[in-house]
Amino acid sequence: MRFIADMMLGRLARWLRLYGYDTLYGVEEDDEIIRVALEEDRVILTRDCGLAERAEKLGGRVILLGSNDLEEQVGELKRRGVTFRELFPPSARCPKCNGPIRRVSKDYVKGKVPESVYERYDEFYVCKNCGQIYWPGRQWREMLKIDKRLRA
Rank of each mutant, 00 (worst) to 15 (best):
L38M: 05
L77G: 04
G10Y: 01
C94W: 03
R149N: 10
D31N: 13
G81Q: 13
E72K: 11
D31H: 14
A55W: 06
I146D: 00
K78C: 10
D69E: 15
I101F: 03
V43E: 11
V113W: 01
T83C: 14
E39I: 08
K57A: 14
G75L: 12
E119G: 12
I34K: 05
Y125H: 04
W135P: 02
V126A: 04
L64Y: 08
Y25L: 02
P136D: 02
C127Q: 01
D31F: 13
F84Y: 04
L150C: 07
A52K: 12
P136V: 05
G99C: 07
E56Q: 15
K96I: 12
L77P: 05
E123K: 09
W135Q: 05
N98C: 04
S105T: 14
P95E: 01
C49H: 15
G50A: 12
Y118I: 08
Y121Q: 13
W15Y: 06
D6H: 04
R141P: 06
M8G: 12
L45A: 06
Y121N: 09
E40Y: 02
I146K: 14
Y125S: 01
C130F: 08
A13Q: 11
R93N: 02
K145Y: 15
Y19V: 03
R85A: 15
A5Q: 07
Q73D: 08
R103T: 05
L16F: 08
N129P: 13
E40D: 10
G59Q: 07
E119S: 10
Y19W: 02
Y108Q: 07
L16I: 10
I63D: 02
V62D: 09
